[in-house]
Design a protein around this nucleic acid. Structure first.
Lengths: 148, 148
DNA sequence: GTTGATATATACTCACGCTATGGATGATGA
DNA sequence: TCATCATCCATAGCGTGAGTATATATCAAC
C-alpha cells in the first residue's frame, strides 16, 4: 500500500506539473496577451497586497531579482506601475499599481475567463467545486515547496 | 444567480491560470531542470503516444512550428530524440523518443515528485482525489479551448 | 505537369531568464 | 565615529526560446 501510494502521488505530481503548465500556456496564448504571465502575476500581486518591493516580488514569483527589475521596468514604461522610495529603507524601491495597470489586469482576467467559460459551464457543480479547491491546494503546495 | 455564477466562474478561471502557472514555475524551478517545460512536455508526449510529427507536437504544445523545430533540434543534439522520415509523407519528419530521452523524462518526473511529495502527503485523501480529478479537468479544458 | 497547399527548416528579431558585479544604503561593533 | 559587512537594487553580458517571414521540398488536384 505504501508503495502504491507513493507511486500514485508521484504520478499525480508529474501530471499536475504537465497539465498545469499546459493549461496556463493555453490560456495565456488564447487571450492574445502580449505581456508575460510573470508580468500579469506581478500586477495581480500588487492589486491584492498593495505596493511591494522588487525583491519581494522576485521572491514570490521565483525569479531572480534582476529579472524582476526588467519586468518592472517594462511595466513602468507602459505606465502600469510606478516606483516609489521606501520610507523605511532608502535602498529599496517600492512598486505600486496604477489605475492603468489595474485596468490591464482586469482586462486580462476577463479575456481569460471568456476563454475558459465555455469549457467550465459544461462541468457539473461538483467538478467546479473540485477546481475551486484545487486552486487553493496548488497555492498551498507552492507555499509548502518554497518554504524549504 | 446567473450573474453570481458567471462571476464566480470568471474568478475561478483567473485563479486557475495564476495558480497553475505559479505551481508549474515553482516545480520546474525547484527540480533544477535546465531544459524548458516545453521540452519536457515533448518527451512526455512521445512517451505516451509514440513517434509524432514536428507539426503535431507544435500544435499540441501551442507553439509555432519553427519554435518546435528548435526544441527538437536541441533534444536531438542531446540524443533524447531522433528524427526519422515519415513513410507516408516525405515532407514530414517524425520525432521518436530514445532510451536516453525516456530516462531524462523519468528523472525529471521523479525530481518533481520528490519536491511535491512533502506537501502532498500532508493532504487528506479527499484533497488528493480533488487534485487527481483537477488534473483530468485541466486536460479536458485545454482540449475544449483548443478546439475552437 | 503545372498550380496551389502543406511540412519542415532557416534567418532574424525580441522577450525573458540567468550569473556576475557595482553602487548606495543599512547595520554592527571596535 | 567610522570601518566593515550585509542587503537592496540596477546594470552588463549571455543564452534560450518565442515570434514572423520566407525558402525548400513534397503532396494533391486538376
Amino acid at each position: 500500500m505504501d508503495d502504491d501510494d507513493s507511486g500514485s502521488l508521484d504520478r499525480l505530481a508529474a501530471r499536475l506539473l504537465v497539465q498545469g503548465s499546459r493549461f496556463s500556456r493555453s490560456m495565456s496564448r488564447h487571450t492574445g496577451e502580449q505581456r508575460s504571465l510573470v508580468a500579469m502575476r506581478v500586477l495581480s500581486n500588487l492589486l491584492q497586497d498593495g505596493p511591494l518591493r522588487i525583491g519581494e516580488l522576485a521572491a514570490r514569483e521565483l525569479i531572480a531579482q534582476p529579472a524582476m527589475t526588467t519586468t518592472v521596468n517594462r511595466l513602468e514604461a507602459e505606465g502600469l506601475v510606478f516606483r516609489g522610495s521606501d520610507a523605511e529603507d532608502a535602498r529599496a524601491s517600492v512598486v505600486t499599481l496604477t489605475e492603468a495597470g489595474s485596468a490591464v489586469l482586469m482586462s486580462f482576467r476577463a479575456r481569460a475567463a471568456a476563454i475558459a467559460r465555455p469549457g467550465l459551464v459544461q462541468l457539473a457543480d461538483s467538478d467546479i467545486a473540485v477546481l475551486e479547491r484545487a486552486a487553493d491546494l496548488l497555492e498551498q503546495l507552492v507555499r509548502s515547496i518554497s518554504s524549504r
